[in-house]
Design a protein around this nucleic acid. Sequence first.
DNA 1: ACCCAGGGTTGGC
DNA 2: GCCAACCCTGGG
Length: 307
Amino acid sequence: MFSGEFIVYFNEYVGDFDLILTMNSGQTSQPPWKMDDNNYYEIILIDNIDVLVKISQEKLNDPLIVKYFSKEEFNVEKLRTKLFYIFDLDYNINEVYDFLEENSQLSDVYEFNRGLRLFKSQFPFECIISSICSANNSIKRWTKSLYDIRRFCGRSVVFGKDTYYVFPREEVFINMSLDELKNCGVGYRNKYMLNSTEKIRDSIDFHENIFKLSYKKAYNEIIKLEGVGPKVADCILLYGYNKHEAYPVDVWINRITTYLYFKNQKVSNGKISSFAHETFGMYAGYIQLYLFNYARLSGLMSKLKEI
DNA sequence: ACCCAGGGTTGGC
DNA sequence: GCCAACCCTGGG
């Protein structure tokens, strides 16, 4: 067993970070990591080696304690880099805070979101399936389906008495039948998932290409997948490919954006989307995340529900 | 037992 | 552009 621990102090990333807030903010990249005793744990792949990671943080900006366990030796620095990617810790989030401060409509948003960061997927493919699954679904059922998919066809990794499941790769996922997927509770989305997986598997360097493309070009590609409309496409680009300009517009974001900027009007998702790109630019992704969370925590959401 | 909504997308007009 | 249908689980 190769194991150890390292600590990330708040001065090693720029701006704030709150692990618990981030884990529980309902981002559709992946279901929340398993948790006990304030430890969140997940299998992270480093150079194809399974690494069990247990990560904890008492509260905002407290040291991040990262414990790792593996059957073979791996490059610990790469694990650190990957965790920084997943929680977007390389990003200077103060830029977002400054933007919020400069815009009076957004002045209340900061206090509910301090330390909230993107929660990105280690595998873009998992984010794609996960986002397709989120469409017209409930959070509860969405979570269960993704755990079921992992248990059904994900690779099992055993550490001591615990078994963990890694989200399947395209080549494995594609072997699931429509009925098997339906048994995971994904419903009619089963055919979208298989069809999209086939497209991804059959194109060369699909993920690398999307990463390289500009937001707009990437959007035009990703929306070609089945089961991927405007909202899901933006989720995939934001949480799966780190495109900060994406502004996923669901019913809530429509209501909230309308409430803040288009009072008493009926605004289409397309119009909300182009408004967000013009107004928020590179901060659109964070503002979407923050507005959703703000609405949830501030009571605005239940207020908007009644309209 | 019945009804309904749920972080949308698709296909048809 | 608008609108119904789409599976199915959890909650009224």
